[in-house]
């Protein structure tokens, strides 16, 4: 069977994302990539933990963090993880339309998360908590910003996938791509849970 051929319900494999060697390679390679990403964020967390009380000329963490808004952002991102799970479930059953719908909702949630984050950063800058106001500021914006960058990249990725494959069904060629996006999105979500705990909750407690 040609990898570019549209899959039908009859020849639909159990795991279309791993049905070809290329798919298997991508699947494994992406898991390994996420392993590297874990080290990347671990290094950022380590740096942040080392500098979280060195405010320099900026305000202290407990003064500026606005938990309600961050909590809302957390809920949005967690929900987007759930919607991407629904999308993958649909993918596994060759329900293309539903899959695309769920991915689209995931994208919208990702974008709203980004909107909230930008709003939050603008607020902080007004309160004197900037990238250059002290070691804490630098570490905060780097860690949270790296995560935000990952969300942004994810949004671009899924947009490209949805646009490119509009009107096309699932194939053995594009199924791994959808699947990997979902994997990526979960990872970004998990990182956020740590950020919420380590940066915001611990920051608020002091």
């Amino acid at each position: 069977m040609d990898v570019g051929e549209r899959l039908t319900d009859q020849n639909f494999p159990e795991s279309p994302e791993k049905a070809t060697l290329e798919g298997k390679n991508k699947f494994l390679g992406f898991w390994l990539f996420l392993g590297g990403e874990t080290v990347l964020f671990a290094t950022l967390f380590g740096t942040y933990l080392g500098l979280r009380n060195s405010f320099g000329k900026g305000p202290e963490a407990s003064e500026i963090f606005q938990l309600p808004m961050v909590f809302a952002a957390t809920i949005i991102l967690l929900t987007s993880s759930l919607t991407s799970v629904y999308a993958v479930l649909a993918l596994k059953e060759n329900r293309v339309k539903q899959m695309r719908r769920w991915f689209f909702i995931t994208l919208l949630l990702g974008l709203s998360f980004l909107g909230l984050e930008i709003y939050e950063f603008v607020e902080y800058v007004h309160e004197g908590h900037t990238f250059t106001s002290g070691a804490f500021g630098s570490a905060f914006y780097t860690l949270v910003g790296f995560h935000g960058g990952h969300v942004l990249f994810g949004c671009l990725w899924i947009t490209a996938l949805l646009v490119r494959n509009s009107g096309r069904g699932l194939t053995l060629y594009n199924a791994p791509k959808y699947y990997l996006f979902a994997l990526y999105w979960h990872f970004v979500d998990v990182v956020w849970v740590f950020i919420f705990t380590v940066v915001y909750l611990m920051g608020k407690v002091g």
């Binding site: 740096t47 080392g50 500098l51 060195s54 405010f55 320099g56 000329k57 990238f131 250059t132 002290g134 070691a135 804490f136 500021g137 630098s138 570490a139 780097t142």
Partner: peptide, 17 residues
């Protein structure tokens, strides 16, 4: 970031280490 965008990770005067 420290060299180009004036971050303060390593500058002791700004709380860096």
């Amino acid at each position: 970031f420290e060299r180009v965008f004036e971050a303060n990770f390593f500058d002791a005067n700004m709380g860096g280490n």
